[in-house]
Simulated scan of single mutants.
Amino acid sequence: MPTARRFPPLRFSSASNFVKASALSVAHRWQGRAVDLSDHRGPASWRAAQALALEGATVYIGDSRARDRAHGFDRLARERGLEKLALQWAAELRGEISSDACAPHAEKIALHEAEEPSENGANPAGVVTLVGGGPGDPNLLTVAALTAIARADVVLLDRLGIALNVVDFAPAALVIDVGKAPGRHKMSQESINETMLAFARAGARVVRLKGGDPFIFGRGGEEWRFLAEQGIRVDVVPGLTSALSVPAHAGVSATYREVTRAVTIMSGHQPFNQAELSSLVSLGSTIVILMGVATFPSTVAGLRKAGLPDSTGVALLEQGYTANERHTFTTLGAAIDDARARGVTNPAVIVIGDVVNVREASAEIIEARTDTPTEGEELA
């Protein structure tokens, strides 16, 4: 996992009823202070305790139902055989938290829960939130995404979601890596669906954190339908899709006045047939391909056969918004040789169209921060 980036401390908002990243430490320094949360029994009390303990406070929680609740989610994960996929346990202490009697000098903090556990001890209704994590830079998470992550009891990460260092935003969540790389699945889609269902039925706020947007080749629609059919409430937080944001970061506008007025986003996981490629050439749209490195040679050959000129611009944009971001700009006629020479690998966004030839060069990052291809699916 990449080195965690440090973000501002967490604060507790009575207006919005959630824990979120903000600048509480501007007004308070928590190192060495004692805080009494023993009067609070809802889920937010455990998130608050973990956040304050991480900032160096000693936190008293009494006979915390909230911590017992977190232990319950950890037990469920172990019962489902998820130990090797757990990046963070919900009930694991990450600071000085005590269930003993509160110290006399401890400060009391008022928390306002949006949803309290029921009086009869039954689990409150769980909910699953499908969250788009954007292209990988935490600064591009939406406020709604940060809110959902901070309030989560359980977070299921996609492979690209791990780059967000989600543990910085969710100090009291069970974090499980269920990411799928090409040909290497840590968990099947069916198992992911059942895992979300199990935790939601146990009363958890579950966040399914996906790279980009949940509904651009992210199976968000499939997961939503499965959960809805089981009676589980599903909320959706859209994200910035890498299909548009990564080209923009490289200075490529997917549409451009008097160049093209359409953009087609496609999955290159399976080879395109000639009819599909001929239709794309006839449409004249910018072509954006995700997961298309392995099939890139056949894609290029088919587009040339369909009549797309060899002078058409091509951009291969690897590992967008990461320290290893790398751009290869070429033309359709030279694209296969250039991709092989550069050792282009996934994850990469491929842009084909005349918009590549009118890119804004001032937007580019240094083209090659590393000359060593990163691990991933090699170009066939």
Score class of each variant (00 low, 15 high):
residue 93 L to K: 12
residue 232 I to H: 12
residue 290 L to H: 10
residue 329 F to C: 02
residue 124 P to T: 11
residue 116 E to G: 01
residue 58 T to M: 14
residue 209 L to K: 09
residue 231 G to M: 10
residue 10 L to M: 14
residue 318 E to M: 06
residue 94 R to T: 09
residue 339 A to T: 04
residue 253 S to E: 13
residue 363 A to Y: 12
residue 98 S to V: 11
residue 181 A to L: 15
residue 132 G to S: 11
residue 17 N to F: 08
residue 299 T to I: 11
residue 33 R to E: 15
residue 6 R to S: 04
residue 238 P to M: 02
residue 298 S to R: 15
residue 326 R to Q: 09
residue 338 D to F: 01
residue 110 A to D: 05
residue 93 L to I: 07
residue 73 F to T: 02
residue 140 L to S: 04
residue 174 L to Y: 10
residue 302 G to N: 08
residue 79 E to S: 13
residue 111 L to A: 04
residue 273 N to P: 01
residue 124 P to E: 04
residue 328 T to Y: 00
residue 166 V to A: 09
residue 294 A to S: 12
residue 69 R to A: 10
residue 78 R to Q: 14
residue 191 S to K: 14
residue 100 D to F: 05
residue 326 R to Y: 05
residue 43 P to Q: 03
residue 304 R to K: 15
residue 296 F to Y: 07
residue 93 L to F: 14
residue 33 R to I: 13
residue 103 A to P: 05
residue 333 G to R: 01
residue 378 E to Y: 07
residue 8 P to M: 08
residue 145 A to K: 00
residue 248 A to K: 13
residue 35 V to H: 09
residue 301 A to L: 12
residue 118 S to E: 11
residue 28 H to V: 13
residue 11 R to E: 12
residue 180 K to R: 14
residue 242 S to D: 02
residue 79 E to T: 13
residue 338 D to K: 08
residue 149 I to P: 01
residue 232 I to G: 12
residue 128 V to Q: 11
residue 184 R to F: 07
residue 7 F to Y: 13
residue 115 E to Y: 05
residue 281 V to K: 05
residue 51 A to F: 01
residue 194 E to Y: 03
residue 1 M to N: 04
residue 247 P to L: 07
residue 70 A to D: 00
residue 98 S to P: 02
residue 240 L to E: 05
residue 297 P to A: 14
residue 321 Y to E: 06
residue 67 R to G: 05
residue 72 G to L: 06
residue 147 T to N: 02
residue 139 N to R: 15
residue 101 A to F: 05
residue 23 A to G: 05
residue 77 A to V: 09
residue 26 V to G: 05
residue 307 G to M: 01
residue 280 L to A: 03
residue 198 A to H: 03
residue 161 G to F: 09
residue 4 A to N: 14
residue 46 W to K: 03
residue 321 Y to W: 14
residue 329 F to W: 09
residue 119 E to G: 03
residue 234 V to K: 10
residue 160 L to N: 06
residue 234 V to C: 09
residue 66 A to N: 01
residue 5 R to S: 04
residue 141 L to H: 12
residue 344 V to P: 03
residue 279 S to Y: 10
residue 285 S to P: 11
residue 42 G to N: 15
residue 248 A to D: 15
